[in-house]
């Protein structure tokens, strides 16, 4: 068995600890139960997998980032004392914080995937052609969980004041989920005399929530509604190149805040 380097072992241990800690606390189960219920109710009301995927997307595209943000901030502040205890040990700082971050993000994604996956699988997902749309939904939403948890950890690391930290975290979610779209809409209307294809493409790529929404919408039947603009988008996102670009963008959205976590954790004075 190849021996893992020491710091990686430590990171995995902390990851495991954070993960089990969250599993033991009731929140993960509440979160899991919520998605389970949502999935069952949607399937019951819609009677149609493809439609249920659309409605589901509508709900979780704003909810997943919100919960990721709040959970991230909450977990960091709650386990602060334990973190300080760990810091007193001869451990690498990056492994401590990365372990915690991954613990939170993975447990949240797991609740999401299992909570939504179970009702859909029982409803006959594997026999339907909505399976790709649904997998895409789960993948992008997991990405969103990772992105927003990382952003939350960033905010919590930079803010000693809990109230301020929560405030900034909520503000960040508000900005990316709602205000960004408002500004985006304004700029589109403002520059309506110019060709807007590129602007709208770039605007979508820059915000992970918009990017996920567009990726899923284009896969669904509803994309015919998008008309001319949809055709341009489909030409971009429908190709492998576009898909790769969008996933690369999502990965960048994860990597950048995580690097900042490592960087900030190294410098921070506790």
């Amino acid at each position: 068995m190849p021996l893992l380097p020491f710091y990686k072992k430590i990171m995995l241990k902390i990851l495991k600890y954070s993960f089990y800690d969250l599993m033991r606390s009731r929140w993960s189960y509440v979160y899991f139960a919520f998605y389970l219920l949502l999935g069952i109710v949607l399937l019951f009301l819609n009677n149609n997998l493809s439609k249920a995927v659309i409605t589901l997307m509508n709900v979780i595209i704003v909810l997943v980032p919100l919960i990721g943000t709040i959970f991230g901030v909450m977990y960091y502040y709650n386990s602060k004392e334990f973190t300080e205890l760990l810091l007193a040990q001869p451990l690498k700082r990056s492994s401590i914080f990365l372990g915690q971050y991954l613990g939170v993000a993975i447990s949240l994604s797991l609740s999401l995937i299992l909570g939504l996956g179970i009702p859909f699988v029982f409803y006959g997902l594997f026999k339907s052609n909505a399976i790709w749309d649904f997998s895409l939904l789960l993948i992008t939403e997991s990405f969103l969980t990772f992105i927003f948890t990382a952003l939350a950890f960033n905010i919590a690391l930079s803010q000693v004041n809990k109230i301020k930290g929560f405030g900034f975290a909520i503000l960040l979610w508000l900005f990316l989920a709602i205000i960004y779209d408002g500004l985006f809409l304004m700029s589109l209307i403002l520059f309506e005399e110019y060709p807007l294809d590129k602007l709208s493409l770039v605007g979508t790529l820059l915000n992970p929530i918009d990017l996920s929404r567009t990726l899923i919408l284009l896969k669904l039947d509803i994309s015919a509604l998008l008309g001319y603009t949809g055709a341009i988008f489909k030409k971009f996102f429908g190709t492998n190149f576009g898909l790769i670009i969008s996933f690369v963008t999502l990965i960048i959205w994860v990597v950048l805040p995580v690097t900042r976590i490592i960087f900030k954790a190294k410098k921070k004075d506790f």
Partner: peptide, 12 residues
């Protein structure tokens, strides 16, 4: 502005 349709189903 037909391009704004890409904001379909956004919370905003």
């Amino acid at each position: 502005t037909p391009e704004t349709i890409i904001l379909l189903r956004s919370l905003f």
